[in-house]
Design a protein around this nucleic acid. Structure first.
Lengths: 232, 232
DNA sequence: TTTGTTAGTTGCGTTTGCGCAAACTGAATC
DNA sequence: GATTCAGTTTGCGCAAACGCAACTAACAAA
């Protein structure tokens, strides 16, 4: 196994302020994993043997119901930890994780979680904060799902994605990983058809440019108006 | 101020296995609060000066959007802690808490949170587990909101409430606090009209008995079929 | 007892968004 | 270059659920 360099993690939130020795110690227990685009990294209710830190790529966190209908709970971006079942007092994963593109992660055995938490209070604090933030965001999304119209929800999701993972280009802000109409629909609780219709309409107005699994946000403020219910 | 008796909390999950001295110490720092039905205990984004343990009653956790539309995020039952902003790495409350009936709580100043966590690992574990469970449940509800029909969602909510807070009576299982059609609609992302229509239909079939802010579940298995999409 | 208030019911028309189906497009593969 | 396939677009009809409005029922306060 290769020696991993502490520069990989040194500047990430969970590790700031840690001694070099500690970082080396933590890294020594990690293994690097490559996940090909489309691969399932872990599944819901599976035994949580590892917890992960995403170094590069994008991961889709997905919940599936009995009928096979699914919803994208969130996207994980580089620098974020995931699969941290222990942080939520579980020993199984609460959802499925799928690589949205080719990904690179560090993985630690879950059995060393307690040690790490104990020895690195900063890491602990950060983990619980992450969980807290996710709970808060999920509640916000639920409120939106319950009160906002499809149009607003779709506009909102595009704005959020552009904000989080957007790359400036000549045309506008490009969402930096392949994302389909189906994906958007699974984030907003609607159908790909409805998403397609909405996006076509916005494209006609010049607010977005989009193609196959590609979305470029051109006039963010216009979508903002849609998201905040400009109808009234 | 009255001396509080450790029997109040001794048997609750966060405190099991704690020494009597520790319990007394913790209790000595708590104050008892009475919250009249309908009172707002705290509001979203308000500074989290206290965290609470509900001794008696039921609390509604509510999120409100810009248009004043609201959604009930969850109900807190006796024995549960709430307002534990620190456990999710915040210093403001993430939602509003309203007493659904007259309530009795213990309150601790948030500034002693870190001490308690440090000195009582069991309390810490339990808190994080609580947060984790709430995250999981919220995600499940979001999935349901996104994929299930109104009818199923309403059926599900009634079943859950009956399960969690149900009291056996001659007629069936009574949901043990006043709950209106409006409340149900705010838990399921629909309107009180639709809830009323559904409940009337179920009442006609004899599956539930309901009145003013009262719901009795008569034939749970029938509602179960509705909840799990018996349509197909 | 009367009056006011809050909760619940129900009919009717409307709208949003779904479901189905068919066609189209661009990228990858052979 | 032909073929295949996944992703996308779009038309059309329909149903679920909403919104409005009017009315009724239960409870509380005067």
């Amino acid at each position: 196994m290769n020696r991993l360099d502490i520069s990989l993690i040194r500047d990430l939130p969970p590790f700031v302020g840690m001694e070099v020795v500690d970082l080396q110690n933590i890294l020594a227990q990690a293994t690097a994993h490559r996940h090909e685009k489309g691969t399932t990294i872990f599944s819901e209710s599976e035994k949580a043997n590892y917890f992960y830190l995403l170094l590069d790529g994008h991961i889709r966190v997905v919940k599936i119901n009995q009928n096979g209908e699914q919803m994208i709970a969130r996207y994980i971006s580089a620098g974020e930890s995931y699969g941290i079942a222990k942080a939520i007092g579980r020993d199984t994963y609460p959802a499925n994780a799928v690589a949205a593109v080719d990904c690179l992660s560090l993985a630690w055995p879950t059995k060393i979680w307690d040690d790490i938490i104990l020895q690195h209070p900063n890491f602990a604090t950060n983990s619980y904060q992450t969980v807290g933030k996710r709970l808060f965001e999920t509640q916000e999304r639920m409120l939106e799902l319950a009160t906002a119209k499809v149009e607003q929800r779709v506009a909102n999701v595009i704005l959020k994605l552009a904000n989080q993972t957007g790359k400036k280009t000549e045309e506008g802000i490009l969402i930096d990983f392949p994302i389909s109409r189906q994906d958007i629909s699974e984030m907003t609780g609607t159908t790909l058809h409805t998403v397609s219709r909405l996006m076509s309409a916005w494209e006609d107005k010049g607010w977005v440019k989009s193609g196959r699994q590609k979305i470029v946000l051109v006039e963010g403020h216009k979508l903002m108006l849609v998201a905040t219910n400009a109808a009234d």
